[in-house]
Simulated scan of single mutants.
Amino acid sequence: MNSDDLECFARVAHCGSISRAAMELGSDQSKVSRQLLRLEATVKSRLFHRNGRGVVLTDAGRTLLEHAKRVTRTIEEARHAIHALSEAGPAELSIGAQPTIARTLFGPLATVLHERFPHTRLRFVEGLAGQVLPWLTSGTVDLALLYLPAHAGGLKADILLQERVRLITPAGETGIGPEFAVRELGNIPLILPSAPHGMRLLAESLASRAGIALHVVMECDASISVIKRLVETGCGYSLLPLAAVAEEAALGRLGTAALVGPEVWRDVALATPRNRTFNADLWPVVNAVRQEVRDLVANGSWPDTRLRDDAV
């Protein structure tokens, strides 16, 4: 005996007809008949008298109906209670992200989450992948938005989009066009963070596959703003997504060139840890994040990206 069978039984009793109950349940008559036969076998009693006009409850059926009503009412109350809890959102919510993602997403996401969950206390935390991952594992943050690392065995990751990586150049650079071949990266002075920063590992991987050696003239583990400033003043070139330099590029302070041969994309993922139980009240938050990301990509607020569904 299960709740589905009891709900089916109660609907047939209310309708007085198996065919009419099947229509209301969005099922077919044979399936409803099988559920009733299974239920009668379980309680070892006939529940209905069948006649030409439909079905009529037996004494056993009337007794079971009272219990079925209580069970279905309790289940419905539980559904409403859980729905109300999930709609309210968690009491507190911490979200971590890497700098470029945080810069692009935290502002609009804060607005959406505050409107959607007005009673939730929000906390946003920015850090490099090497910081965000331990925060996620320890519970310092509930969710993380990050560039998916090569080895993500400790994470449950939902890839949201792919973001293109570009060569960032000083303004007015005449020797570089709108595209730049990966195999040429060894011929220009680069400003990159040190390992194990994700962008440095990506650059080294690209160089290895292209059979070249990078010419790193400066390592910078400071903020992206510092790297951009170094490029702007002519100290070298760097690798960043367009979203990180959109303002400077629009003002003509920095240039960009799309990496080609191959094109270079990074996966942006919504991550939760495998070592902790996922709280049910985070589901509406996860859905809100997914939708906001889709909206940002669709309206161009997260440039040079494609949703995972659109990737080729």
Rank of each mutant, 00 (worst) to 15 (best):
M1P: 05
M1L: 09
N2H: 04
S3V: 13
D4P: 00
D4L: 08
D4E: 08
L6E: 01
R11M: 13
H14W: 00
G16L: 03
I18F: 07
I18W: 02
R20L: 10
A22S: 10
M23A: 11
E24R: 13
G26C: 09
G26N: 10
G26I: 09
Q29H: 11
V32Y: 02
R34N: 12
R38H: 12
L39R: 04
E40M: 04
K44A: 13
R46E: 12
L47T: 04
H49I: 07
G54N: 05
L57V: 03
L57M: 05
D59A: 10
A60I: 00
G61V: 01
L65D: 04
H67T: 10
R70C: 00
E76S: 11
R79P: 00
H80R: 14
L85Y: 06
A88D: 11
G89F: 02
A91G: 10
E92S: 13
P99F: 03
T100K: 08
T100F: 05
T100G: 15
A102H: 02
L105E: 03
F106K: 06
L109H: 03
A110R: 14
A110Q: 14
T111G: 09
L113M: 07
T120F: 01
R123S: 11
G127L: 07
G127I: 05
W135I: 01
T137Q: 11
T140K: 04
V141Q: 02
Y147R: 11
L148C: 03
H151T: 09
H151L: 09
H151W: 02
A152L: 01
A152S: 12
I159K: 12
R164M: 06
V165D: 09
T169I: 04
A171D: 03
E173T: 15
I176G: 02
G177R: 11
P178T: 05
F180Y: 15
L185C: 11
S194N: 06
A195R: 12
R200S: 07
A203H: 08
E204G: 05
L206Q: 09
V217F: 07
E219A: 10
C220Q: 12
S223K: 09
S223D: 14
S223L: 11
I224Y: 02
I227V: 14
T233Q: 13
G236F: 04
Y237P: 08
Y237S: 08
S238L: 05
S238K: 05
E247S: 15
A250C: 07
A250H: 09
A250W: 04
L254Y: 12
T256Y: 07
P262F: 08
P262T: 11
P262W: 08
V264N: 08
V264M: 08
R266G: 06
V268S: 03
T272R: 13
R274L: 12
D281E: 14
W283L: 14
V285H: 03
V285T: 04
V286P: 01
A288H: 06
A288L: 05
A288K: 06
R290Q: 10
E292Q: 15
V297F: 07
W302L: 15
W302C: 12
T305D: 10
L307F: 05
